[in-house]
Design a protein around this nucleic acid. Structure first.
Length: 555
RNA sequence: GGCCCCUUCGUCUAGUGGUUAGGACGUCAGAUUUUCAUUCUGAAAACAGGAGUUCGAUUCUCCUAGGGGCUGCCA
């Protein structure tokens, strides 16, 4: 690397945070101490990055990767970095980056360095770093580890088709085939120079040395060995001058001093290429540690979870709502479905990791404390929406009635439902053990807010019979004369009436519940009546008598 | 096809060379509850298969099967 510093002065600034310029022995010693301190601090302070591509909304798999990176960094007192990998201009989606940062923010995954926060290793958008990659790619060509290739995409496609026709389905651009292709290895030097000077479209490919056994030390999978002769000469720089993932990733991870690469398992097959790149670039000794996370699978286990799956199976796969800027299509998010970010994160962390104890509910700080990469599993985890719901239920019940009332009030105003003078805290107290989401309080108990418009068919059929009409008629008088509308007084009055009239308590109660709420189940009825109040109660009884069929008195 | 990864109840998982293989979600049953729900109690439910190593394998090794990923000038 010494040679590199003099050649690439610009790069050396980034590469050597504390360049040693020792005019005296004293300065030398001081510098050594500083360097030692620096290394000590660095070795105890990992730097990890979450590096999504802004090609659409982040889905839960990506978010879990971010979460694990975050937890790992925080646990070790390290730095969590957001880097935007926007090197594919054709797939760039407007708003995707904003969505990514908003999603991280919603989940409480704060990063210390990123495109909108800056940091000493910026810029953090790859599209703003393109000059960097070109330099390193040129170095690679100069050192013989990469070469220019002029084969057009069409030519490659034809080649593949040809080979397939000849019974070779797995043709790849590699050490066996590069000699018959249109590149700087096969073309005479002057021809290559002429083409480059003429601006002929070309890519730069890595020249994989076929005689190596590459060993990846993976924190989750252990040792993974791959023979380099199986690898293909991956494109490093595309014809548009931008790097591919492989090139950009390795260069940036090095320049940003990334110590641990924690990413999805889909990257495991290309990790040998990355290892080779580190070596070819002269960074073999500074390679980060790798940890490849298991994938999140579809609930039916058929493949990894993709954005269409949620749609088909009726649950969100995105943290927040996303409207596709092209099609206008709306993709539902966990947030809008009613999930608390805490519950969402808690659910997510357990998809592939566990603390080894029986504790299931964790706050983010608790997760930071408990998280260990060693405890991340190897096998893909199927996403289970029922369990996700259960987590939300737990968090919902953890809130006080007043907190819940505030959330309900907010939701009601968004839905433009007038709560009037309804005691929302009381409603929440009665409903919190019966729902998984705030919205369900309204959805399953609209009767707190409005007079029932319809009456549940099944309940009417099964319970609205015998002396129901007569009973409600008589009860109307009883309730009209009642002054105290608290649950106890109501219940006492009701009991007294029921006993006197010889009604069955349970049956009578269901009939009353039906006219008051329109449904057959719910919280204790007299608590409901106490909340909706006298005039509304009487009105509903009258309406019920008018709307429901008259039942015959049967003995 | 090739390469790589993976495999404990339906699902998420704990676990150890000798365990009644533990927990959670879900399911079912019972109790409590004026209904629904909650809560409580209980039940059913797993080491993919085959060899080998070993006194003994769910645990270690190999093979097979199954699943997944990658195989783009996408990431």
């Amino acid at each position: 690397m010494g040679g590199k510093i003099s050649i690439n002065a610009g790069k050396s600034e980034i590469l050597d945070p504390l360049p040693i310029r020792a005019p005296s022995y004293c300065m030398f010693v001081i510098n050594c101490v500083i360097l030692w301190l620096f290394h000590t601090i660095m070795s105890g302070n990992p730097r990890v990055r979450f590096a999504p591509s802004p090609t659409g909304p982040l889905h839960i798999g990506g978010l879990r990767t971010a979460l694990y990176n975050y937890l790992f960094a925080k646990k070790q007192g390290g730095v969590f970095i957001l880097r935007i990998e926007d090197t594919d201009q054709t797939r760039y989606v407007e708003g995707a980056e904003a969505y990514i940062t908003a999603a991280l923010n919603w989940c409480g995954l704060e990063y210390q360095e990123g495109p909108d926060k800056g940091g000493e290793y910026g810029p953090y958008r790859q599209s703003e770093r393109s000059g960097l990659y070109r330099e390193y790619a040129a170095d690679l060509v100069a050192s013989g580890h990469a070469y220019y290739a002029f084969d057009t995409p069409e030519a490659l496609e034809n080649k593949r088709a040809d080979m397939k026709a000849k019974g070779i389905p797995a043709w790849q651009y590699d050490h066996r085939t590069r000699g018959e292709m249109d590149n700087s290895l096969t073309l005479p030097d002057d021809e290559v120079q002429r083409r480059l000077a003429a601006g002929e479209p070309h890519v730069i490919r890595i020249k994989v040395n076929p005689d190596e056994e590459i060993t990846i030390q993976d924190q989750i999978r252990g040792e993974v060995k791959v023979m380099s002769k199986e690898l293909d000469d991956k494109v490093l720089m595309k014809a548009d001058g931008l790097p591919t993932y492989h090139m950009a990733n390795v260069v940036d991870d090095r320049l940003m001093r990334i110590t641990h690469v924690i990413r999805g398992e889909e990257w495991l097959p290309s990790t040998p290429i990355h290892v080779l790149l580190y070596k070819y670039l002269g960074w073999g000794d500074e390679m980060p540690e790798f940890a490849h996370l298991p994938l999140i699978l579809r609930p039916d286990g058929k493949g990894k979870l993709s954005k269409r799956d949620g749609d088909k199976m009726g649950f969100p796969v995105f943290p927040m709502d996303w409207t596709d800027p092209g099609s206008g299509e709306l993709w539902p998010g966990f947030r809008e479905t009613g999930f608390y970010p805490e519950a969402f994160v808690n659910m997510l962390v357990f998809l592939g990791w566990n603390p080894g104890t029986e504790q299931e509910l964790f706050t983010l700080p608790e997760l930071v404390e408990a998280f260990e990469v060693d405890r991340v599993g190897k096998a893909g985890a199927r996403f289970d929406y029922e369990k996700a719901t259960w987590f939300n239920e737990q968090y919902l019940r953890d809130h006080s009635d007043d907190e819940l009332a505030g959330q309900l009030s907010e939701w009601l105003s968004v839905q433009q439902v007038a709560a009037g003078s309804t005691d929302l805290a009381a409603v929440c107290r009665l409903m919190k053990e019966r729902v998984s989401f705030i919205r369900e309080i309204y959805e399953s108990a609209m009767y707190f807010f409005e007079t029932p418009a319809t009456y549940d068919d099944k309940t009417v059929r099964k319970k609205w019979k015998g002396r129901s009409t007569q009973m409600i008629t008589e009860l109307l008088t009883v309730f009209e004369g009642l002054e105290d509308y608290d649950p106890d007084s109501l219940e006492a009055a009701f009991k007294q009436y029921v006993e006197k009239g010889g009604y069955g308590f349970g049956a009578a109660l269901v009939s009353l519940r039906l006219v008051i709420t329109g449904v057959g189940g719910g919280p204790p009825l007299f608590d409901i009546i106490a909340i909706i109040g006298k005039s509304e109660t009487l009105a509903r009884m009258k309406k019920g008598l008018g709307s429901l069929p008259r039942t015959e008195t049967v003995y």
